[in-house]
């Protein structure tokens, strides 16, 4: 159980919630969030970690209230409790050297903690961030604390802004169409790319097999074996 510290809109239809008391995870992991005791909707919602403040013991999530579950989250007030089961999933591998982060829409959220961890692991490295939004940007300022360059794209294809021919590790999270474009560009440039996938899941821990996908190395569970994969492994699942 975690206590809600803050829960407010940061853009049209986008909320940011900070909670205290959830076990600390790392970039790319997620929690199953659930209104305590709720039977309708019943299941938790997989929401990725957007930022961790280890000193305060706070974890921040950015989410889009589009269904009944996330709409319930949006109505929660500071001081109220939320069930935060996790952290689950493997998280992003922190590679050395230059890094390029690509986030699309709500997929920008896990990139923030990634930028933070990459910066912490190497203060001198170059971190370029590309953010794509349909209508309105968010989290842009927060990225500026950790990134050398933040490029945003509203209404277009963010992957068009990215040079995939750099000697760098690329990370991407966003809608399928964006991940497919990133995978295609990575193929052409022979780039190293890690993608975070999203699928409907019931349990989040690898038991229900609701989110399994076909990979180069057999069937894998997005929740337990992912959600972060080397894009070459999950080409057919993107």
């Amino acid at each position: 159980m975690a206590e809600i510290i803050k829960n407010e809109p940061i853009a049209n239809g986008i909320y940011r919630m900070s909670v205290f008391g959830a076990p600390l995870g790392r970039a790319g992991q997620f929690f199953m969030l659930r209104v305590p005791g709720a039977l309708d909707p019943l299941l938790g919602r997989p929401i990725s970690i957007c930022e961790i403040d280890a000193d305060k013991g706070e974890t921040t999530f950015v989410y889009q209230p589009i269904g009944r579950g996330t709409a319930q989250f949006a109505a929660l007030l500071p001081g109220q409790q939320i069930e935060a089961q996790g952290p689950y999933g493997n998280g992003f591998p922190l590679k050395g050297g230059r890094t390029v982060l690509i986030g699309g829409g709500i997929g920008t959220a896990p990139m923030l903690q990634l930028a933070k961890e990459l910066r912490k692991s190497d203060p001198a490295r170059k971190i370029d961030v590309f953010l794509g939004f349909r209508e309105e940007a968010y989290l842009e300022k927060e990225f500026e604390s950790y990134a050398d360059n933040v490029t945003r794209n509203i209404g277009g294809y963010v992957t068009n802004d990215v040079d995939f021919a750099l000697d760098a590790t690329y990370y991407a999270c966003g809608p399928s169409v964006m991940l497919r474009a990133a995978a295609k560009a990575a193929d052409e440039a022979n780039a190293s790319l890690f993608v975070s996938l999203e699928k409907h899941m019931a349990c989040g821990v690898g038991a229900c097999l609701g989110c399994t996908c076909q990979t180069e190395h057999g069937r894998k569970r997005v929740c337990k074996d992912g959600p972060v994969f080397d894009y070459r492994e999950v080409r057919d699942a993107i």
Partner: peptide
């Protein structure tokens, strides 16, 4: 699709 939430339940 393998799982789908329904009122107070789920389809699998």
């Amino acid at each position: 699709m393998r799982v789908y939430e329904t009122p107070s339940g789920m389809l699998n």
